[in-house]
Design a protein around this nucleic acid. Structure first.
Lengths: 315, 315
DNA sequence: CTGTTCTGTTCGGTGAAACCGTACAATCGG
DNA sequence: CCGATTGTACGGTTTCACCGAACAGAACAG
């Protein structure tokens, strides 16, 4: 393989014409230049220089290699510039893992804003539930995740950086005209005879729903278990069930009523990135876009923690 | 500037995925690969690798550099291949310096043949008289010259290689119907009252014409001195003069009569190249084309030397 | 839970290379 | 002929690439 330093010397020789000038330009001694060019000749097994009088001339082979070498060096410089641009400008691919209820209310608006402000930044949205997003972030499937630190099963190591985003209220979702809808807040105990819709088994919201119901003294009767919150809302909309959902998941276009619980429950919503990833301008731009959510029904910053504290404070 | 060896390791890492595999493929130790990649990171001032578990993953920056690096390495390999092709295949530019009388009878037919047999070989014909062609060859203006070793003013050093091509008879050129044309060979002494056309002052043929005339006991009366042999032949054709010319210069389409001298005079015609240039296939192809002259009025190999012997035998 | 075996990295040491300064040969100019 | 300038050859020094061993973390089998 060719050596870029030697190619540079040859390329300089073509433009400057003399070994001494090359040496001065490259801040080397003339002997070094001569030696390196000789090495290049043995490496390529081609005569590149022709000694003519007291100066040196490029052979056709030398001329060819000098010109191609310059192209190669230019390409190297270009690659280096692109490399630095990648860190300094918000461009390139960023994969954002978001749990389902935050997709349309948080991630999509952020992505829309980013598409106009940073057209060269390619954002890839991935639906990742809290129990999946941690490993995905570590393995590199995602560069940024929006998740909850209340999730009990996962520890956030020192390699990850937590950026608190706010808290998401857990609300009771009722069909319009439901008897419980007349009150501003509802006690869960009043729902013990209701039919429930909830997320799929083992999912975060399914576990939470069951736990809260049990804490209120009853076992919920479940009518459906849908991973898709839109289907779940339709089920409630149709008067077939009620549900506990994060407020983020309920968009205005659904004909349902949401009511807070009499003992309010929130879950922490946090951005997590791999430590060191924040040096990328693109990552920072996405994080900033996520934190800036004007159209969002304000995420109250006060929150009642459901799980244990994160093992690492968000520095 | 980037280092090609390190780029190769990064590029290999992208395809192989693991440092160990890269080390094996590159016939290096794993520690070396790790170190070199670390050097690449400090050189670029970018994080290229991300340690994830017990293996390593490329960052977006690393991925970019790996791909661009592969392009660069491919280009290097391509350049190297072109370089060797330049020596092994008859391609590229070859500049051929030829004295005037050999242009249309020797050089142009050879160039025509070469154009069909070696389309990628670009031959550039340069009119160079014997006194010019030596320096031009040495300075690199020409890669091959066709000249005469009989020329007295020049020494052929050890840096040049002589390839004898044949000998060119010096003939007397007469207008059709000229009284001297009745004989098969003419003695120069019989021409002492003629009007002469010859080459420009100081040129090879002008000097030769004067010398031969003086040896025959008279000073030629010169009517014109043209550097262009075609004009010179027209002058003779018109009956205004006679001339001494190399047989090569007289093509059949001219309405003139050529007669040999009673004491025949030849001049040596030789190909000269810079020693070492013969390693180029293109140069060899041109030399071969020049030596192969089917349509040429045979250059007799016997010759009567006009000047001193070349200082170097054509080995 | 524990040892085993992968992973990549760190460390001290070694040989090769890149490099310098000097000396030298050749060339060009005056 | 002499001085200026060219490229090169030769010794010595510094830097770099490399290795092998030791190490630390992670996956995995028992």
């Amino acid at each position: 393989m060719l050596h870029s330093g030697r190619l540079r010397l040859l390329s300089l020789l073509e433009t400057l014409g003399t070994v001494r000038a090359v040496a001065e330009t490259a801040h080397l001694s003339a002997s070094t230049v001569s030696q390196q060019l000789a090495v290049l000749e043995t490496e390529t097994r081609c005569r590149l220089l022709e000694r003519t009088g007291r100066r040196v001339r490029l052979t056709p082979a030398g001329l060819l290699l000098a010109r191609r070498g310059r192209e190669i060096l230019d390409q190297m410089a270009e690659a280096e510039a692109e490399l630095h641009a990648l860190n300094d400008e918000p461009i390139g691919l960023v994969r954002l893992g978001v749990f389902q209820s935050a997709i349309y209310t948080l991630a999509v608006p952020a992505a829309t804003r980013l598409a106009t402000t940073h057209p060269r930044l390619h954002l890839e949205l991935i639906e990742l539930e809290p129990h999946e997003s941690g490993p995905a972030l570590r393995s590199g499937e995602a560069d940024i995740i929006v998740t909850t630190t209340d999730y009990t099963g996962l520890s956030w190591g020192a390699d990850l950086e937590l950026i608190p985003l706010g808290s998401d209220q857990i609300v009771l979702v009722l069909p319009p005209g439901h008897p419980l809808a007349c009150r501003t807040t509802v006690s869960l105990a009043a729902c013990k005879d209701e039919i429930w819709a909830c997320d799929r088994p083992q999912s975060y919201m399914a576990e939470l729903t069951v736990r809260l119901c049990r804490e209120s003294g009853f076992e919920p009767r479940v009518a459906c278990r849908f991973g898709n919150y839109l289907m779940l809302l339709r089920h409630v909309e149709a008067g077939r069930s009620i549900a506990l959902l994060p407020a983020l998941a309920v968009t205005p276009e659904h004909a349902v009523v949401t009511r807070g619980l009499s003992t309010p429950v929130h879950r922490n919503v946090t951005i997590v990135v791999r430590r060191g990833t924040t040096q990328r301008a693109a990552v920072n731009a996405v994080v900033a876009a996520l934190r800036d959510h004007p159209e969002l029904p304000a995420l109250s910053t006060s929150h009642h923690r459901l799980g244990r504290e994160p093992t690492e404070p968000p520095r």
